[in-house]
């Protein structure tokens, strides 16, 4: 296994997600529709993928992990249906109550048509993530694997550690 590149982002390293986006990316307004988990994964993946050629990107496998799934958005959605007087289920929130949407957002941004998978684990174990990610090569042949941990609690508490791996 080769680690081609890796990136860690936290509020201390990059500051506010939206401000980072405005300063350094700026050409993808869909960013503002995303939930916090997707924004975190999007920014981290952007740093690793922006300089790669399109033909390599189209065959990347995206294999991401976290502990809380989409629970932050699940709670937000739950609040829209709890009270009878204030019942307003929103499709724009509901669609982000699936953790794997972050893999889809990254795939759409970079036209990645390889595998996309999301796994939930209790602990951020880099070795285990790399093992599961590299297992892609047992049944398929991606150009590289984008893997790692992506977690978002709020704008002051998010963390992604993503890596680009190859055989």
């Amino acid at each position: 296994m080769k680690v081609i590149s890796s990136i860690e982002i936290t509020p201390e390293i990059i500051g506010n997600l939206s401000e980072y986006y405005r300063r350094n990316i700026g050409d993808y307004p869909k960013f503002f529709k995303m939930d916090g988990l997707c924004k975190t994964g999007f920014i981290a993946s952007e740093i690793l993928l922006q300089s790669l050629p399109a033909d390599i990107k189209s065959d990347i496998a995206i294999v991401l992990f976290n502990r809380s799934g989409s629970l932050v958005t699940d709670r937000k959605y739950q609040q829209t249906i709890t009270s009878e007087e204030n019942y307003f289920p929103s499709p724009a929130i509901f669609v982000y109550t699936l953790a794997n949407i972050v893999t889809g957002e990254i795939a759409i941004r970079h036209k990645i048509m390889g595998e996309s998978s999301f796994y939930i684990m209790s602990e951020n174990d880099t070795g285990l993530q790399n093992d599961i990610a590299m297992e892609c090569y047992l049944t398929s042949n991606p150009s590289m694997v984008l893997t790692g941990w992506v977690e978002y609690e709020n704008d002051e508490d998010f963390y992604a550690h993503l890596r680009l791996l190859s055989k």
Binding site: G104, A107, M113, G114, S116, T139
Partner: peptide
């Protein structure tokens, strides 16, 4: 096999 459409969420 697993593939993404890279089209819409």
């Amino acid at each position: 096999s697993i593939h993404n459409d890279a089209n819409h969420i």
